[in-house]
Structure formats: C-alpha cells, structure tokens
Amino acid sequence: MADNPEIDALTPYARSLGIALDAWEDGTPILSVPFDETVEGRPEHYHGGATGGLLETAGYAALRAELARQGRSAMLKPINITVQYLAAGKSRTSYAQGRITKLGRRSANITVEAWQDDRNRPIATAVMNVIMAEPEG
C-alpha cells in the first residue's frame, strides 16, 4: 500500500468551486464536488467548465502526490488540456481521479476520469500536459 503524502491538492479556485479531497486510492487522491449552484450550467446539469475544472484539479492532485512521494518540489505550469465530454453531468456529486501516464524531469502527461454513480461510466475524461519548473526564490 502506497503512502498517502501530505499534499496541498486544492488551489484557492478549487476550494472556491467546492472541490474536496474524497479518498485515496493506490496512492492517488480522488476528488469530489457536490452538485451546487456554483457548478450548474443548464438547469440540473453540470456546466462543462465546472466538470473541466474538476478534471484539471484531479490531474494536478495526482501529479503533486507523486512528486511529494519522490521528494520533489516543483512549480506546475499548465501546457494544455483536452477534455472529452461523454455524458451529461447530472445533479449529484461528481468524482475524479488522475493517472500519471508519463513523469519526466520537466514534463508530465496525465489522464483523468470523472464519474458520478458508476465509475465504469465516466462522464468526462481529460489528457493534460504539465511543465514542472524549479521553485522560485
């Protein structure tokens, strides 16, 4: 069982949106966001941007956890994200977990899945590229 490192998984933006750390699984954080007005697009459904924000936050959290486990500190800079919307996000809690596909010295490639009731039926997936820069100062 992998250790679950102390990480700052949530940015001010993520906390403001209502994202929370839900659980750890195989050393990777699972994040959740309750359905609330802050995430609502068309009535009773998630806004695509809110779902994207959850995916992106889960991707960063997975990367921070792995960097912490390796004793590395880095400033993370987004390069890009591609989100695939697979099903409408309904008015209930959504979850997301990232998986690091490749972790190099300067860059990481991460895939993320978001789901609601059934983990085998994701509502959205994402691929992200992130650059890791030396901490300033």
Binding site: T11, P12, Y13, A14, H47, E56, I81, V83
Partner: peptide, 24 residues
C-alpha cells in the same frame, strides 16, 4: 478575483476558470 487563483504562492489565475470562460 482573488479566490480564483491557481497554485499556492503564485499570483496567477487558475486555468479552470479560463476553460469555463471559453466553454461559455
């Protein structure tokens, strides 16, 4: 907005709100 910042210690807007802005 101050509460939409990204990584701790950097005064930079998170990328999530930009995604939402562009989606809208």
């Amino acid at each position: 907005r101050e509460d939409l910042l990204g990584e701790e210690g950097q005064r930079v807007l998170a990328s999530g709100p930009i995604l939402s802005l562009m989606d809208m």
